[in-house]
Design a protein around this nucleic acid. Sequence first.
DNA 1: GCAATAGTTGACTAAATTACTCGGAATTAG
DNA 2: CTAATTCCGAGTAATTTAGTCAACTATTGC
Lengths: 163, 163
Amino acid sequence: MRLTTKGRFAVTAMLDLALRETGGPVTLAGISERQGISLSYLEQLFGKLRRAQLVESVRGPGGGYTLARTVAEISVADIIVAVDEPVDATQCGGRENCHDNHRCMTHDLWTSLNATIFDYLSKISLASLVDNQKAKDTSVVQDQRTLRRTAACSDAIAGSNAA
Amino acid sequence: MRLTTKGRFAVTAMLDLALRETGGPVTLAGISERQGISLSYLEQLFGKLRRAQLVESVRGPGGGYTLARTVAEISVADIIVAVDEPVDATQCGGRENCHDNHRCMTHDLWTSLNATIFDYLSKISLASLVDNQKAKDTSVVQDQRTLRRTAACSDAIAGSNAA
DNA sequence: GCAATAGTTGACTAAATTACTCGGAATTAG
DNA sequence: CTAATTCCGAGTAATTTAGTCAACTATTGC
C-alpha cells in the first residue's frame, strides 16, 4: 500500500467517471480535459483499471469507459491497488530472510500498518465520494455549467444506487 | 501525506533507536548494521529527524542519537512527515487555481482523505510499536544458530530492493 | 594538545519511478 | 470507408530514491 500522486490521479479520474457514466461510456479525452490529466497517462492508468476489472471499455465512436461495478462496490483501496504496483516493500518481500531477531521488526510493523490503512481505505467507496462531491456542488452553485453538471450528477447517483 | 519506503526506513530506524536508547546514545553505524540501511542514507534521514526535533544528537566518542521526546509522544505520522517532504499533492498546492467548477473536486477529496490517514497514523505512537516488538522478541526467542545468518541476510535485503 | 569518535553538511550519482509523448494498431458507429 | 475511440508498446524528461564521497565540526580520552 503506497500513497502517491499516481493513486490520486486514478481516484480523481474514477470519481469523474462515476459522476458521468449515466450518459453512456465516458471518454478519456473528456476526463483529461476536465481533470487536467494528460490523455496518454490516463490511457496507462485505465489499462490497469480495466485489467483490475474496475472499469469496462467500449471501443469505437461513442465508446469510452464505464464502471464495472456500482459505485458502492468500488473502494478507494481498490483503485489505488490497481494502479500502484504491488511492490509490497516489507523489504524481505514476505519471505522470512531478514535479520535474525530483527526479521519480524520491519516485517510485522509494515504488514500490520499496511493492513490497517488498506482496511481504512477499503471502507471508503466511490459512492461516498460521489455523495460528498454532489453536496459540494449544490452548495456552491455558480453558473449554467455547474447547474447542468449537478443535474447529471443527481441522475448518476440515483441510477447507480438503484442498481 | 505519502507512504513510501523512505518513511518506512525512518520508522524502522526510529524503532531501533527506541528499543536501545536506554544504554545511552545510539550510533547510526549501529542502526545501519542492525537494520541493513546504508549509513549515509541514515545520515540524511536523521538530519531531517533532528531538524523536526524528533531526535537529539550527541557528538564525539560515545555519542549518537537519542529520542527528543518519550516514545509515547512520537507518532508514526510525525516520523513520516519529517522525512517525506511536504509535497502536498493537491495539484493546486492549496491555492484555488485549479479548473473552474472542478477545482474543489480533487482538492477537497485529498485534503480530507489525507487528514484522516494522518489522523490515524498520529494515533500510533512509537511506544505501541516498541511494546508490540518486545512481545514479538520474547515470544520468538532465537538461538545461536540463527545469529550466524545475519551476514547472509544483509545481502538478501540489498538484493531484494529491486523487487 | 592530539588522536579517535561521531555527527553535519553539501555535492554528487545511479537506479527507479513518475508523468508524460508518440506512433500506430484494433474496433466499431455511422 | 472514415472517424472516433480504446489498446499497446516504445521512448523520455523530470523527479525521487537510495546511496556515495569528502570535508568539516564538536567532543572525549589519553
